[in-house]
Structures are given as C-alpha cells and as structure tokens.
Computed example of a mutant assay.
Amino acid sequence: MDTREAYTKMITAYPGGWLAMAAALGMTKDALENRVYERKGQQINVHTAMQLQAFSQTTLFAEAISQESGGIFVKLPDLNECDHEELLGKFNQLYAELGQLSEKFSHHTQDGRIDRREKKDLTNTSQQIHRTVQELMILTFAIYCPREAESEKGRE
C-alpha cells in the first residue's frame, strides 16, 4: 500500500467520508482531494497525514510509510490486559495465517508464474505473519519477563 492509497482508505474509513474528513481537517473537499491527488502542486504533509490517521482510528499511514521504507508496521498490543489466553490466541492466529500463506502460495504458483497481483497478495499475507510474530513475542516477554517490562516502563 502506498501513501495515497492509505490516505483514501483513511478518508473512506471516517464516518461521512470525504466531506466529513475535509470538514474535520478544516478544509473543503476540493482542497483535500487536491492534496491527496497532488493537484496544483499540493501535497499532504506529515501533520495532516497523522490527523487523518487519528481521525480514522487506523494505523494506515504508519503501515504505508513502513512498507515504502522496506519494512512493516507492528502495532504494539495493550500489555495491561495480556495473559496466557491472549498468547494462545496469537499462536492460533499465526497458525491460521501460515495456512493462508501456504494455500495462496499453492494457488498462485500453479501456472509456474507469480503476477503482480499475486505477488502483492503473497507479500501482504507474509507481512501480516511478521506482525503477528512480533506481537506474539511482545506478549511472551510481557508475560514471562515481567521485571524487564516494568523496568522499561520506568525509563519512558
């Protein structure tokens, strides 16, 4: 996902869509469209992108920047509510995602080639697996290394 796609998804995720988001940002719909589609030399600046993300209650801007930078975005789980059941749930989620990747791989490679759409699909699935693994490790350390987690909180 590139930043423009993230902007449009955040805008459509906001109740009322383009008109409501433009009003929330203090601009007209045309002004917002000009910035998103980079008309007349206009662009979305980082501050506005962060506002879009906050208003839409998503992490799409962070995800797009991470992907464009060659990485992935991992939203940290709420450690106040972590327990063994949540950890088990993450493992189950990981198993399901690995199954999806295996199924997609089999399907997309049947003809001996992977096209652009298939590559994007496999990449998105693998990036979700990376996020799940990172969330799993964060939960694991929060449960099984509680002293470290407390000392790290004190440094913030």
Results as ranks from 00 to 15, higher is better:
residue 59 T to M: 11
residue 20 A to T: 07
residue 122 L to D: 06
residue 112 G to H: 03
residue 121 D to P: 12
residue 81 E to C: 11
residue 113 R to I: 01
residue 71 G to H: 09
residue 27 M to F: 04
residue 71 G to N: 14
residue 111 D to E: 10
residue 86 E to P: 03
residue 27 M to P: 08
residue 87 L to Y: 15
residue 133 V to P: 01
residue 45 N to K: 03
residue 117 R to I: 12
residue 58 T to S: 10
residue 106 S to V: 04
residue 124 N to P: 06
residue 133 V to R: 01
residue 95 Y to Q: 15
residue 68 E to Q: 06
residue 127 Q to M: 13
residue 40 K to S: 05
residue 40 K to Y: 06
residue 84 H to L: 14
residue 106 S to W: 03
residue 32 L to N: 01
residue 41 G to I: 00
residue 143 I to Y: 06
residue 126 S to Q: 10
residue 68 E to V: 01
residue 128 Q to D: 12
residue 101 L to C: 06
residue 49 A to V: 03
residue 92 N to I: 12
residue 33 E to F: 13
residue 143 I to C: 12
residue 114 I to C: 01
residue 110 Q to G: 09
residue 37 Y to A: 00
residue 114 I to L: 03
residue 80 N to C: 07
residue 70 G to S: 08
residue 132 T to A: 06
residue 65 I to D: 04
residue 145 C to F: 08
residue 62 A to Q: 09
residue 105 F to Y: 13
residue 117 R to L: 15
residue 61 F to R: 02
residue 74 V to Q: 00
residue 56 S to P: 07
residue 17 G to S: 08
residue 58 T to D: 07
residue 131 R to I: 05
residue 92 N to M: 14
residue 145 C to W: 04
residue 68 E to G: 02
residue 85 E to G: 10
residue 28 T to L: 02
residue 26 G to D: 07
residue 60 L to E: 07
residue 119 K to S: 10
residue 22 A to L: 02
residue 122 L to C: 08
residue 17 G to I: 08
residue 141 F to Q: 12
residue 125 T to K: 05
residue 96 A to H: 09
residue 120 K to P: 03
residue 16 G to V: 12
residue 22 A to N: 01
residue 21 M to W: 00
residue 44 I to E: 00
residue 118 E to L: 09
residue 109 T to P: 06
residue 56 S to A: 13
residue 137 M to V: 07
residue 73 F to C: 04
residue 22 A to G: 00
residue 123 T to W: 02
residue 32 L to K: 01
residue 143 I to E: 13
residue 108 H to P: 10
residue 19 L to T: 11
residue 123 T to E: 12
residue 61 F to P: 03
residue 106 S to N: 12
residue 101 L to K: 01
residue 128 Q to H: 07
residue 21 M to C: 02
residue 129 I to D: 00
residue 54 A to F: 08
residue 44 I to R: 00
residue 24 A to F: 07
residue 47 H to M: 14
residue 137 M to E: 11
residue 76 L to G: 12
residue 50 M to S: 05
residue 55 F to W: 02
residue 91 F to C: 15
residue 144 Y to G: 09
residue 23 A to R: 13
residue 72 I to D: 11
residue 85 E to T: 11
residue 72 I to Q: 06
residue 51 Q to E: 13
residue 14 Y to V: 03
residue 147 R to A: 15
residue 55 F to Q: 01
residue 77 P to S: 14
residue 42 Q to H: 09
residue 127 Q to T: 05
residue 140 T to Q: 14
residue 22 A to S: 02
residue 13 A to M: 05
residue 71 G to V: 04
residue 137 M to H: 06
residue 53 Q to V: 01
residue 39 R to L: 08
residue 17 G to A: 07
residue 20 A to S: 14
residue 105 F to I: 13
residue 62 A to N: 09
residue 77 P to H: 10
residue 18 W to N: 02
residue 38 E to G: 03
residue 115 D to V: 03
residue 145 C to S: 14
residue 119 K to A: 13
residue 44 I to K: 00
residue 125 T to F: 05
